[in-house]
């Protein structure tokens, strides 16, 4: 990654243009051609730095219910439990963390009823309790990250 790549990542995280020739517009900001912009993005995608380019929807605005869940999973059953949990389409993030509550996942479902049913289902299939930690209040969601080496790239 050179400095142009870093600036490019800064731009496409926040202000991806919604216009007929978006890569031309981004290229103009960086002083590179449309073709080079596309080539650089293709490379960043191949390298796995860009996971996806598109719309990040607001789940609440779409009427979906989301939550954060924690489980205390015995280490010897972790992989089986993770496989069950990961199998749900609404489980979008799942992490192993350094705590007795070692498995942490986010769940997004079309309704509250669906959410509760999914949690009961996971408990039944894994034999482990699922601790539900729905947000009582949301203070911030900002999913554009600080790009290392870019000053002022946060917003």
């Amino acid at each position: 990654m050179d400095n142009i790549d870093k600036d490019l990542l800064g731009i496409i995280q926040k202000d991806f243009p919604v216009c007929s020739r978006p890569f031309q517009e981004i290229g103009e900001k960086l002083g590179i051609t449309e073709d080079e912009t596309v080539a650089r993005l293709s490379k960043l995608k191949e390298q796995g730095i860009i996971r996806r380019l598109g719309a990040i929807m607001d789940s609440r605005k779409l009427g979906y219910k989301s939550t954060l869940c924690a489980m205390e999973v015995p280490p010897d059953t972790l992989s089986q439990v993770a496989e069950v949990v990961n199998g749900y389409i609404g489980v979008t993030h799942n992490y192993l963390r350094n705590h007795d509550y070692n498995l942490w996942f986010t769940l997004i479902t079309p309704s509250q009823g669906h959410l509760e049913k999914t949690l009961r289902d996971i408990e039944k299939r894994t034999g482990q309790k699922v601790y539900n930690l729905p947000a009582i209040r949301l203070f911030k969601i900002k999913v554009n990250f600080h790009v290392p080496g870019v000053k002022g790239g946060e917003g």
Binding site: F16, V18, G48, I49, R52, M57, D58, K61, F145, P148
Partner: peptide, 28 residues
């Protein structure tokens, strides 16, 4: 399509339009 996307952005159905990065691959 462009008009619809802008409309969804204004109405807040689209929270952000752009790239989702893998922060681990970026060194975070």
């Amino acid at each position: 399509l462009l008009e619809k996307i802008k409309e969804f952005q204004e109405q807040g159905y689209i929270r952000r339009f752009g790239a989702a990065l893998r922060h681990r691959e970026m060194g975070l």
